[in-house]
Design a protein around this nucleic acid. Structure first.
Length: 557
RNA sequence: GCGCCCGUAGCUCAGCUGGACAGAGCAUCUCGCUUCGAACGAGAGGGUCGGGGGUUCGAAUCCUCCCGGGCGUGCCA
């Protein structure tokens, strides 16, 4: 159990006792939190419960605080309880308990902060899911990095996690993609070509077309037959997906599952879903199209499921089938989708349809990240795949590296709007805070190498010798780690990982500057050993963090 | 117009379900390497938390109204 949970439990017990003594129904007891105060003078944890109770008990918060404290049990975890104006209770943890945590870090290593047993709970994290109509660019990185970090974290917390990429290969964009490829093949083969407004214009498209061109030298591609069109489109799609996989690989992302939109149609699961909606009396025909009655379910308007023009399903229609499949066929107990903010209007109608299909929509969690836009001296421009004006992921990673890229996106909360000035972005990458964190790791590694060189064994070191402010600060920061992981598992705010990493690195650097670890004077060997223990524990936590964020933990830099 | 999101230091951003003096990095200005890595540390300056009301013992955080920006409001995805 987390220490904050433990403190909450005993405080809650004291609260109930207090209310009973006053003859108040315990059902009225307020929710309260145990939190870490910003100022460490106020102990390791604190609660403002007495302030919250003031009205209910109609008495002075300071008195309530005293009463509550008197009702709290003596326990080995707590060193000191105190009250502070205007009505806080402050908890200081016992040295003994803290020392045990440090030992736990050293024993558990990668498993520190993880639950002991695997959770039998299937979670799918679906992220990236960019149309296979070109390579990934800067605008796609945000969701990719956040999604992969969430998946890493949930896996770390022993959920049964599947990382999925949804391949939108059945829609209109694929037709445009196919047409674009064919024009570029014609171009590559020296024939007349016609790249218009509606075509994808990026270098990546030209590259794919060039690879395919030799196979179609003797084809007349002017009025191409459906079969040939589909053949070319599919070959180009496959090549494109391989390139997307290469791109993802560059930023340490590997999906477990690639789910094709086309498979929903081929397997008749899509038509089955339509039938299902029809059975629920949710669809109707109008203007030669098939509509769904989302307005009466609370959406802004009704939506089209099957288009009149080509009798093909809309994105929304196949997405209903896709999400139904996640829950009904594959039995995920929770699904986390990472979408760009331009999809936010899509959430509500998806949820109401899921409910109609008998699926608890709370099982679907959609995380929106705000769209990334490019800023330059000429103003703000958008990433446009169609226009090919984006900055390719592979180029950016090649220039500034995966770790700096990942950190830049992890460290911002998803709802913050990013207007990236690419020159500043690149410049900041060279001095990216990730290097500050990694440098701390490299320094710790260096110390441990020295200890091996001097053959200093410190398994039996005495943690009680760690008493300087820098050492205490470091220890306190380390034992926050399980609380951090627990919190992010709940709120999915992975940018807290980056904030914590920076704080930890800072404390490590301060500790390093002021406390020489390896003292060559043998009279101080016990202190050397205890500090080595702390160094090792710090390195474990730092390395775990970097690993969760998908970054390297360098032994040397 | 309507809906959702955002506005915190010169710049990029944190600030965890309201909590105890508004933070970090970069940039600017000082200072510190004969000892484990100076990709570091110590210190200084810099903010009416977009603005006005309100709720509360307490508001950057909640409510409301303005201002400014993003996204959505397709038989695109």
């Amino acid at each position: 159990m987390l220490i904050s949970e433990f403190l909450h439990n005993i405080t809650n017990k004291a609260l109930e006792d207090l209310l009973k003594a006053k003859g108040i129904d315990t059902n009225n007891s307020p929710d309260f939190i145990i939190e870490k105060p910003k100022n460490s003078d106020f102990g390791d944890f604190a609660t403002s419960l007495p302030l919250q109770l003031s009205k209910l008990l109609s008495s002075n918060p300071m008195e309530i605080a005293e009463n509550l404290v008197s009702l709290l049990p003596d326990c080995k975890e707590i060193e000191k309880l105190s009250i502070a104006k205007p009505g806080f209770i402050n908890f200081s943890l016992s040295k003994n308990w803290i020392n045990n945590e440090i030992k736990m870090i050293l024993v558990s290593e990668k498993d520190y902060g993880r639950p002991l047993e695997a959770k039998n709970f299937k979670i799918q994290v679906e992220f990236v899911s960019v149309n296979p109509t070109g390579r990934l660019h800067l605008g796609h990185m945000r969701g990719a990095v956040i999604g992969s970090t969430i998946a890493n974290l949930l896996e770390n917390q022993r959920f049964n996690v599947q990382r999925e990429y949804y391949v939108n290969d059945a829609g209109n964009q694929m037709q445009i993609f196919g047409n674009s490829i064919i024009e570029r093949i014609k171009e590559a083969n020296g024939a007349d070509f016609n790249v218009s407004e509606d075509h994808y214009k990026g270098e990546d498209i030209i590259e794919i077309a060039k690879e395919l061109a030799p196979n179609y030298k003797n084809y007349n591609l002017e009025n191409v037959e459906d079969s040939t069109f589909n053949e070319i489109k599919n070959k180009a799609k496959d090549k494109c997906i391989l390139k997307i996989k290469d791109d993802l690989n560059l930023i340490k992302i590997k999906h477990d599952s690639w789910f094709y939109e086309s498979s929903l149609i081929d397997s008749n699961y899509f038509s089955d879903t339509l039938q299902n909606l029809d059975d629920l009396n949710l669809t109707y025909k109008k203007d030669d199209a098939l509509w769904i009655k989302t307005e009466e379910l609370g959406d802004e308007r009704d939506n089209v499921l099957v288009k009149s023009s080509d009798k093909k399903p809309t994105y929304f229609a196949t997405d209903i089938a896709y999400h139904r499949n996640k829950f009904e066929v594959r039995n995920f107990e929770k699904v986390i989708d990472l979408w760009g903010a331009d999809h936010h209007g899509h959430i509500k109608r998806m949820e109401i349809i899921l409910e109609k299909l008998g699926i608890d929509s709370k099982k679907l969690i959609v995380l929106l990240n705000q769209i990334v836009s490019l800023k330059s001296s000429s103003g703000i421009s958008k990433f446009s795949k169609r226009e090919g004006t984006s900055i390719l992921l592979k180029d950016l990673v090649g220039e500034i590296g995966s770790d700096a890229c990942r950190f830049s996106f992890i460290s911002r909360s998803p709802e913050s709007q990013m207007e990236i000035d690419i020159d500043i972005f690149k410049k900041q990458s060279s001095e990216n805070p990730v290097f500050y964190i990694q440098y701390a790791h490299a320094r710790l590694s260096s110390i441990l190498r020295s200890s091996e060189y001097f053959k200093i064994k410190f398994d039996d070191a005495d943690i009680n010798l760690l008493i300087s402010p820098d050492e205490i600060n470091l220890i306190k920061k380390l034992i926050e780690y399980p609380e951090l992981l627990n919190r992010i598992t709940e709120n999915l705010n992975v940018h807290e990982l980056s904030t914590y990493s920076l704080e930890l690195a800072q404390i490590i650097h301060k500790f390093y500057e002021k406390n020489r670890v390896i003292d060559e004077d043998l009279a101080n060997i016990e202190q050397t050993k205890s500090r080595l223990l702390l160094v090792k524990a710090s390195k474990i936590i730092l390395s775990n963090l970097l690993s969760l964020m998908g970054m390297e933990s360098p032994e040397k830099m």
